[in-house]
């Protein structure tokens, strides 16, 4: 049977309920929570601060360092704490997505550390992580040209959908599931990251990217609104 109705009843271009919150880690220079339905990410930013060991320092620009990790109890089968191949790759992908947006050249010899933790996962965790990290960087006052907004677009059987859930990711009928995680810079609307797992024609991919950009514009509005609502929260620190 064709995928004509989404498993959770959403419209095809509709994301799950999005929640965003700023200032969830008081110790950090900036922090945020971002969730797509049951997928929850928190991010904390420390820096710009002096980079150790010294030999890593670059007198021409600062360094952005991201670390993504799923907490052991974020999925059904417990994950052993500590880094693994998947988290190492996603950390790098996150770094590559965020770096174009921040003016890292202004901070020679320093590092900006972005730590992302996923307490509860229901697919699209890297996208939630990037969205949280983007908010946390803005909260920390790291100079940014624009925000970064991320979403996963799926092709479930023949149907394109926004914000893929775990149940959709596991869909096996018809053409099965193709999952395309992508991130856009908010102002220039350029692609900062894209990854694809599955099977899709270039024409369909083009459609998927269009849907991704449209969806990211909606998500960006939520990011901007939550940033505007903070104001003096940092005075509390």
């Amino acid at each position: 049977m064709a995928y004509t109705k989404r498993i959770d009843g959403r419209k095809f271009n509709e994301t799950r309920e999005i929640k965003a919150k700023i200032g969830v880690v008081p110790n950090a220079d900036g922090s945020a929570m971002f969730s797509f339905g049951d997928t929850v990410a928190i991010a904390a930013v420390y820096g710009p601060r002096q980079l150790h060991p010294q030999h890593l320092q670059n007198p021409e620009k600062g360094l952005l360092r991201c670390n993504y990790s799923m907490l052991s109890f974020s999925v059904n089968e417990r994950i052993r704490p500590g880094p693994n191949k998947r988290s190492t790759e996603i950390s790098k992908i996150t770094e590559w997505s965020l770096a174009p947006a921040i003016l890292i050249d202004e901070f020679p010899n320093t590092v900006v550390d972005v730590h992302i933790a996923i307490p509860q996962a229901d697919a699209s965790t890297r996208c939630a992580g990037i969205n949280a990290a983007s908010l946390a960087l803005a909260h920390a006052g790291v100079p940014m040209k624009e925000l970064v907004t991320s979403v996963s677009i799926g092709k479930i059987d023949k149907q394109l959908v926004a914000d893929v859930s775990k149940a959709e990711e596991d869909y096996e009928e018809g053409e099965g599931a193709t999952d395309i995680a992508m991130s856009f810079l908010s102002r220039s609307e350029k692609l900062a990251h894209i990854q694809l797992d599955g099977k899709i024609s270039p024409k369909e991919l083009n459609e998927a990217i269009k849907l991704g950009l449209e969806t990211c514009k909606k998500i960006r509005k939520i990011q901007e609104d939550v940033l505007k609502s903070i104001k003096d929260e940092k005075g509390e620190k």
Binding site: V25, P26, N27, D38, V40, L71, S72, F73, S74, V75, N76, R78, P119, Q120, A121
Partner: peptide
């Protein structure tokens, strides 16, 4: 309300200290 994927879990705050504890079973 820590994680629906955990068998049990808690977010505990003592002043500004915050700790998350999850229980999984195998």
């Amino acid at each position: 309300a820590l994680s629906k994927k955990a068998e049990g879990g808690a977010k505990v705050k003592l002043g500004k200290t915050e700790v998350w504890v999850g229980v999984k079973m195998e």
